[in-house]
Amino acid sequence: MTKDGAQALVGELSPTEAYELLGDNPEAVLVDVRTRAEWGFVGVPDLAELGRSTVFVEWARFPDMSINPRFVAEMEEKLGAAKPSHYLFICRSGARSMGAAMAVADHLSRTGEPVPCINVAEGFEGDLDAAGHRGGLNGWKARGLAWRQS
């Protein structure tokens, strides 16, 4: 529940389901909430074949990983006049993006604009494998979805 008692619209989809939603719904938007360093060194989702681009806004700031107090405002600034039908949030493994999804759902509910906010489960790199590495077990990259180095 949000602070005003309204039900927050937060869901979760697999990376493949998220990509399908983005392909089927031109008003849906993908927000990558990782850090600038992650975008630069690990890569980013590539929505070019859908004729779209990802919105990049840091949820937490490197190096102390403090929550960005202007996250919602920065996201809205980058979207401009666009009114997405769905917000999809992605991070490294799905934890930070859930926090971002909840914050945006709460904000939208309080402003009278409840829009589904969806966490991309597994994130961009996914969970650690037995060797302690990410990127091969699950996640956007391991599922074979389009990505590129930025």
Rank of each mutant, 00 (worst) to 15 (best):
Gly11Ser: 06
Thr111Asn: 10
Val72Gly: 02
Arg70Gln: 14
Tyr19Arg: 02
Phe71Tyr: 14
Ala130Pro: 00
Glu113Cys: 06
Arg110Ile: 00
Pro15Phe: 07
Ala60Glu: 15
Pro69Leu: 08
Ser14Arg: 10
Thr35Tyr: 11
Lys141Cys: 05
Thr16Phe: 07
Gly123Leu: 06
Val33Gln: 03
Glu49Gly: 00
Gly80Arg: 04
Val72Asp: 03
Val55Asp: 05
Ser85Lys: 10
Met75Trp: 06
Arg36Thr: 07
Pro26Cys: 11
Pro84Asp: 12
Leu21Arg: 07
Ala105Trp: 08
Phe41Cys: 02
Pro84Thr: 12
Arg143Asp: 14
Leu9Thr: 01
Met98Trp: 08
Phe124Glu: 00
Gly5Asp: 04
Ser97Ala: 11
Pro63Thr: 12
Pro45Val: 09
Gly112Gln: 09
Asn68Lys: 13
Arg143Gln: 11
Thr111Val: 14
Leu88Gln: 10
Ser97Met: 05
Phe71Gln: 02
Phe71Asn: 01
Leu79Ala: 09
Leu21Ala: 05
Arg36Leu: 04
Tyr19Ile: 01
Pro45Arg: 08
Ala142Pro: 02
Phe124Met: 11
Asn119Ile: 01
Ala8Arg: 15
Pro26Met: 12
Met102Pro: 00
Phe124Tyr: 14
Ala121Asp: 08
Asn138Tyr: 08
Ala6Lys: 13
Asn25Gln: 13
Gly5Ile: 07
Gly80Ser: 06
Val55Tyr: 09
His107Val: 07
Asp64Ser: 08
Gly11Val: 06
Gly11Asp: 05
Pro116Ile: 11
Ser150Asn: 02
Arg70Trp: 07
Leu108Thr: 04
Leu108Phe: 14
Ala81Thr: 14
Glu77Ala: 14
Gly112Lys: 06
Gln7Pro: 00
Glu20Cys: 01
Ala28Met: 02
Arg70Glu: 12
Thr16His: 07
Val33Glu: 01
Glu58Phe: 12
Glu122Gly: 01
Lys83His: 13
Ser93Pro: 00
Trp140Ile: 01
Gly51Leu: 02
Cys91Tyr: 09
Leu50Gln: 13
Ile90Thr: 07
Ala100Asp: 03
Gly144Ser: 10
Arg61Glu: 08
Ile118Leu: 15
Val29Asn: 03
Pro116Asn: 11
Thr54Arg: 08
Gly5Trp: 09
Pro116Glu: 11
Pro69Met: 09
Pro26Gln: 15
Pro114His: 15
Leu21Phe: 03
Glu76Lys: 15
Ala100Asn: 04
Met1Glu: 11
Glu38Val: 09
Gly132Tyr: 13
Leu21Tyr: 01
Val120Met: 06
Trp147Phe: 14
Arg134Trp: 05
Ala131Ser: 10
Leu9Lys: 06
Ala60Met: 15
Phe56Val: 00
Ala82Ser: 14
Pro114Trp: 15
Pro116Arg: 12
Ala73Pro: 00
Glu125Met: 14
Gly23Ala: 13
Tyr87Trp: 15
Ala101Thr: 12
Glu12Cys: 13
Gly135Tyr: 06
Asp106Trp: 08
Ala101Trp: 12
Gly51His: 02
Val55His: 09
Glu27Cys: 07
Leu137Asn: 01
Glu49Asn: 02
Val42Gln: 01
Leu79His: 07
Asp46Val: 11
Val115Gln: 09
Phe124His: 04
Lys83Gln: 15
Ser93Thr: 13
Ala142Lys: 04
Lys83Gly: 09
Gln7Leu: 05
Asn68Arg: 12
Arg96Cys: 10
Gly132Asp: 06
Glu38Tyr: 06
